[in-house]
């Protein structure tokens, strides 16, 4: 709850102070801070004490071999691990100064702040419109005009509007994989989160769809903080400002992407990005 309250207060100020070059209102991105985070699944320790600060309006790529904990770490930020059996967590994760793992946090409110896009496009078996409007409708918003505006804006932001505007009633399952993934991004944007988590969002897509989504990510960082898990080194170097390399539940190196890919501090990082292991 507190998070939203803070954010609403923030936004009021932002209306006057922050605007993009053409004068339109901008969404306010959030900052993430993880302190000594440890995660267990049953007896297995998946994250072994990670500290990390992610600045607002940046794109951060999480890289590392399968099973290194990068997805687990990503899912901590919107508490999607809560449903995993045997999940246990220690440490603090703060989003704009609020610890999201304290007891009285409202997980549903938190997830409206922190959107997520998954590996496989997962539209609901409903119409395109219903997919995008879902996040708003569950907040009790029924005003048709407002919904229509938000849906259109989200679809435009996700670069899907031109392709679907005549057919919003069509089933989302009839779209192509790339379109479905952009629909899932639009669905997330419609709720106006401040952070977007992406868990290998292009791994199921063809190169052209991938390029579209990468371009999208580039635009979105103007208004959002973006974290993307990826197995694709080129993708990480193309789209991210910062890169974090995970290995066996530890954060080996976290720095500007340029530095990681040209002059990494650790030998392990270099070995991984040059393809010597992983």
């Amino acid at each position: 709850m507190e998070i939203t309250m803070n954010k609403i207060a923030d936004r009021k100020i932002d209306l006057n102070t922050i605007s993009s070059k053409d004068g339109t209102e901008l969404n306010q991105a959030s900052r993430i801070e993880a302190k000594d985070v440890k995660v267990w699944y049953g007896d297995f320790m998946a994250i072994k004490g990670i500290d990390m600060t992610i600045k607002p309006n940046t794109v951060t790529a999480f890289i590392g071999p399968s099973g290194c904990g990068k997805s687990t770490f990503l899912r901590l930020f919107n508490r999607m691990n809560d449903y995993v059996e045997g999940f246990k967590m220690e440490g603090k994760i703060k989003i704009n100064e609020d610890n999201i793992y304290k007891k009285k946090i409202n997980v549903e409110e938190l997830r409206k702040e922190i959107g997520m896009v998954f590996q496989k496009p997962n539209p609901f078996p409903k119409s395109i419109f219903e997919n995008v409007a879902y996040g708003l409708k569950i907040q009790g918003i029924t005003d048709k005009k407002f919904l229509n505006e938000r849906v259109e804006k989200a679809l435009r932001q996700a670069d899907l509007w031109e392709e679907v505007k005549g057919d919003l009633k069509k089933s989302a399952l009839a779209l192509s994989g790339g379109q479905q993934q952009r629909l899932c991004i639009a669905r997330t944007l419609a709720v106006k989160p401040s952070i977007i988590l992406m868990d290998e969002p292009t791994s199921a897509l063809d190169p052209i769809s991938t390029a579209k989504i990468e371009e999208l990510i580039h635009h979105l960082k103007e208004e959002y903080t973006i974290i993307i898990v990826t197995h694709n080194m080129q993708q990480a170097s193309r789209i991210s400002d910062y890169t974090a390399f995970f290995y066996l539940g530890e954060l080996i190196e976290f720095d500007k992407t340029k530095k990681i890919f040209t002059n990494p501090e650790k030998k392990q990082t270099e070995n991984y990005i040059t393809g010597r292991f992983g």
Binding site: E108, R111, G115, N122, I138, C184
Partner: peptide, 27 residues
């Protein structure tokens, strides 16, 4: 009903009840 549908619904801030009512039962 695929787990991905539950994930999508929860990630948008839906409660368990909303996920059941709007996604799982219709599906």
């Amino acid at each position: 009903v695929p787990k991905s549908i539950r994930d999508a619904s929860y990630a948008l801030g839906a409660s368990k009840w909303q996920t059941i009512w709007y996604q799982l039962l219709p599906a």
